[in-house]
């Protein structure tokens, strides 16, 4: 990734790495809109397009964190707007479970965010990334990172 940690860098100003799984119909299109509107946000995020937030297996979240990502963002349609009726609710529940598992593993469940972002909310998407980067900087680097950095 672009954002490497330099020697002697304190954990406070490290650059968090975020993996995002965005629903095709809303959040991914919202992220596209941020681009079309040229709204700038930190480059710390890598996006995977999924058909629906409800297709996100909790394993994806755990895998990303266990492999060293500092945060995972799941984006889905607003309540009632899911293209597949109720996938976003399924996602919300699964994210809640993944967070609990991470907490139990001592990996801080706050690293995982679930957000409703619609196709027209480019600005919200950019803001979400900004906020998430800021919060992850407070939480500090994922301890699992060192597995490959060493």
């Amino acid at each position: 990734m672009a954002v490497e940690r330099e020697e002697g860098q304190s954990p406070g100003d490290f650059e968090p790495r975020i993996v995002a799984l965005l629903c095709n119909w809303c959040s991914y299109t919202g992220a596209d809109l941020a681009g079309t509107s040229r709204i700038q946000y930190p480059p710390n995020i890598r996006v995977i397009r999924v058909m629906c937030s409800g297709s996100v297996d909790p394993m994806y979240i755990l895998k990303a964190i266990l492999e060293g990502a500092d945060g995972v963002l799941i984006g889905g349609c607003h309540a009632g707007d899911c293209h597949y009726i109720n996938g976003n609710y399924k996602a919300r529940r699964r994210v809640a479970i993944a967070r609990r598992v991470l907490d139990q593993l001592g990996l801080d469940g706050r690293r995982v965010w679930f957000r409703f972002i619609s196709a027209s909310e480019g600005r919200l998407f950019a803001e979400t990334v900004r906020e998430m980067v800021a919060q992850l900087k407070e939480i500090g680097p994922n301890p699992m990172r060192d597995r490959w950095e060493l």
Binding site: M1, Y60, A64, E67, G68, A69, W148
Partner: peptide, 10 residues
Amino acid sequence: LMSMIDTFTG
């Protein structure tokens, strides 16, 4: 999906 996550965390 796992392989894509791998590219981002590797």
